[in-house]
Design a binder for these strands. Structure first.
Length: 127
DNA sequence: CCAATGACCAAAA
DNA sequence: GTTTTGGCCATTG
């Protein structure tokens, strides 16, 4: 019906299926955890469309209420083009949720990666 | 349809 | 650790 869905100030005329799935996964990421583009793509049904996930993120609007700051690349580093203020803002948001960063400025994916796909070593061991 | 682009990923040098 | 190369697939002109 009509031309896809008009969202805020942007008109979405892409494969809503893929994007909807991506956004759904992003919404599923719990606070304090992060997810990689590749994982999101995989969950969305396109195991190799990691770039499209990033593209979807760039198209995200604030009104959608998506925690896109929890999506990082496979290296645990933040993209330079975070839509809501840049990587600096993204990092601040993540730290506010309890995400720890390494000295290199990358996120410790071993502790914050989500979902816990088959990794049995989620033992926090705080001390 | 073709070419270029992109918040990527992994392997190789 | 960095830089380069290839692949991946949807969007855009």
């Amino acid at each position: 019906m009509e031309e896809r869905e008009r969202v805020g100030a942007g008109l979405i005329e892409m494969d809503e299926v893929f994007f909807e799935c991506v956004y759904d996964q992003v919404k599923n990421v719990p606070a304090g955890s992060v997810c990689t583009y590749g994982t999101i793509a995989e969950l969305a049904g396109y195991p190799k469309a990691a770039r499209e996930v990033g593209l979807a993120m760039s198209r995200v609007q604030r009104a959608w209420n998506l925690p896109c700051h929890r999506i990082v690349n496979a290296q645990g580093t933040l993209a330079p083009t975070y839509a809501f203020g840049g990587k600096d803002k993204q990092r601040a948001l993540l730290e506010a949720e309890g995400v720890a960063f390494l000295e290199d400025g990358a996120i410790d994916l071993a502790h914050h990666r989500w979902p816990p796909t088959g990794e049995p070593e989620q033992l926090a061991l705080p001390l």
